[in-house]
Design a protein around this nucleic acid. Structure first.
Lengths: 119, 119
DNA sequence: CAGCATCCATGTTGATACTG
DNA sequence: CAGTATCAACATGGATGCTG
């Protein structure tokens, strides 16, 4: 632990966040409303059933998301962000802001390249 | 782009940061001093030559890191953080803080479980 | 010193079909 | 509705040997 202290924390944090769909799942749940399985699917059109299940299980395992089952037919399951999960909000927000700027910057570069060609 | 705006930014941001070793590489370069290839290897003992090369190339590609070659024998190459790369600092810092708390929390839970057993 | 090339092991995600 | 199971594809990382 002593010889690679910084790395541990990064890895621990990133493990909770990475996974192709975790940030976007957390993002939606951080809006505050509990969401049902199929509601999440609709909000994240490209995700497969399988990956949504897997990632939700992992987030639940880490106590970032809570899962409430209503024992009824048809089944109803609601996912919501936990108090602990809310502590991720600053990270997600920072990532979101930076990502936005990053995309815009990349876009600008492409446009400049196009411009250079026609000059 | 319109139907999944949030996702794009997250993915864009995370792409720049993930990769098993990127955060730790950026972390070291963010200290300010330019570092040579083998200096980075020493600072990150577990990384392989291959991965250090690959990740540095990707970071360079995104203009987060700059690579300066001194044409001499033996070769000398220095890597340093770019101005743009410095904009990642808040993200890395936030991740680092959260990761630290996350690890401590997990540790606490384990201890409590041990405690429960002996009770 | 600072790499590149090759091959291989593993992990992650996707496609598809099926179920209480 | 909210999953599970299985198989296949692809991405990521590691080990090793070689080079200007």
């Amino acid at each position: 632990m002593q010889e690679k202290p910084a790395q541990c924390q990064f890895v621990a944090a990133l493990d909770s966040i990475v996974g192709k769909w975790k940030p976007i799942i957390l993002y939606h749940l951080l809006q505050g409303e509990p969401l049902r399985f199929n509601e999440l699917r609709r909000l994240i059109p490209d995700i497969t059933q399988r990956m949504l299940t897997l990632h939700l299980r992992e987030l639940e395992e880490e106590e970032l998301v809570s899962r409430v089952i209503y024992p009824q037919i048809p089944p109803k399951v609601e996912y919501s962000i936990t108090e602990y999960g809310k502590s991720l909000s600053p990270i997600l927000e920072t990532l979101h802001q930076w990502g936005k700027a990053h995309v815009e910057r990349r876009q600008l570069k492409l446009e400049n390249n196009e411009q250079a060609k026609t000059d």
